[in-house]
Design a binder for these strands. Structure first.
Lengths: 205, 205
DNA sequence: CCTCATTTGTAGTGATCACTACAGATGTGA
DNA sequence: TCACATCTGTAGTGATCACTACAAATGAGG
């Protein structure tokens, strides 16, 4: 059995380049011409390896998800709900403005509203954002069972608020918000979500 | 002086249809074919009236901004900072899920990441979102001067947090979040931002 | 070395993109 | 009534889109 000519490019490295293009331009704004140029391969190689543009996007997204979800698991291992949220939001502030990556998060930059040929893209991105929210909610349910959250706290609502903040931070980062901007709004959000026990906000006058 | 054949379509009504298309599909996902079909006009009429696709988008955006900013002015007239934020967030929860409109907000759905031909679009949308944030920050500065906010509150950071929530809610709405979802996370956010003075969060046991 | 499965680069494919030339239609002013 | 300025519909324009036919190249079995 002959095995055929071996692939001359590194699949994972090429996916990283594709991820970068989709991240900066969105699914619809990324053209095959730019993708192949950045990946350093020709269209037939791309189509043989990934099927079509959407297949390439999904493969790049899978690679992105693997990173994100590995990082998320680390964060969810933090001892308290407050610590989980703090690391998640402050970590996201750093990640969204990391000069090594395009600004923002591929889960949002990929495309929120697309045309007919790309209608799967917003749905797929929403699905992946929802996965993170489920993991966060489950972590809050555990915290609630451990007495680590006030008894009236609703894990699902808390998780949805944290995810809302994260997605809002993403919109801001893509519009040029600085790392400091994001950290300071995270500080304020954390103070509201997990008020320091001894401080009396409106005591003196 | 002859005045030429009069325009046969209603400019404002046509812009409303175009706004709807851009809102659902984003700038890049909206094709001229769909725009002209929905607007009920032919390409030459569109180009005579609006110049090109970007001109049409800007005109639709201007119409959208006029509505948004008029509504924003009403909200900023609320007597207290807390009331401003409450009306803004709860109002946004209703607006983002209003079945009369596409889900989400045109300022975000229009396009966060676009290709080379549309690079002005994300920047223009960011500029308009920033306008709302400035108005909100100025309202908080007024509240701060009136003693309506705690002395350590920073209006700019508070405004950026509220806008972050709004933009995050937009991402969620475009992904199918229900009106109830949004209202409940807004309730939680409001309780954190403006804690009820008499309630002791961790008193009983 | 030969066969064969697969990849690679070249050079395209039809479809669709935003956009427009053109001629007929339409209403205004003289 | 007639010239003119503008709009309207038909029917395209070249450019670019995602995608592919094809033959040379490449290396693993036999």
């Amino acid at each position: 059995m002959a095995m055929g000519r071996p692939r001359a490019f590194d699949r994972e490295a090429a996916l990283d380049r594709a991820m970068d293009v989709f991240w900066r331009k969105g699914y619809e704004g990324a053209t095959l011409a730019e993708l192949t140029r950045e990946m350093g391969i020709n269209p037939p190689s791309l189509y043989a390896a990934f099927g079509n543009k959407e297949g390439l996007f999904t493969a790049a997204l899978d690679r992105y998800s693997a990173r994100i979800e590995s990082y998320l698991r680390e964060i969810l291992a933090a001892p308290t709900a407050r610590e989980v949220v703090s690391r998640m939001l402050h970590g996201k502030a750093d990640y969204l403005t990391d000069p090594a990556n395009p600004p923002g998060c591929l889960y949002v930059q990929g495309g929120l509203a697309c045309g007919e040929d790309a209608k799967n893209v917003p749905a797929e991105l929403a699905r992946r954002r929802a996965r993170a929210e489920v993991a966060l909610r489950e972590r809050f349910e555990q915290a609630s069972a451990e007495g680590d959250l006030p008894p009236d706290a609703v894990p699902a609502v808390l998780a949805s608020l944290v995810m809302t903040l994260i997605q809002g931070m993403d919109v801001r980062a893509s519009a040029g918000a600085t790392r400091e901007d994001l950290h300071s709004l995270v500080d304020l959000a954390l103070a509201g979500l997990f008020p320091p026990p001894a401080a009396a906000p409106t005591s003196d006058g």
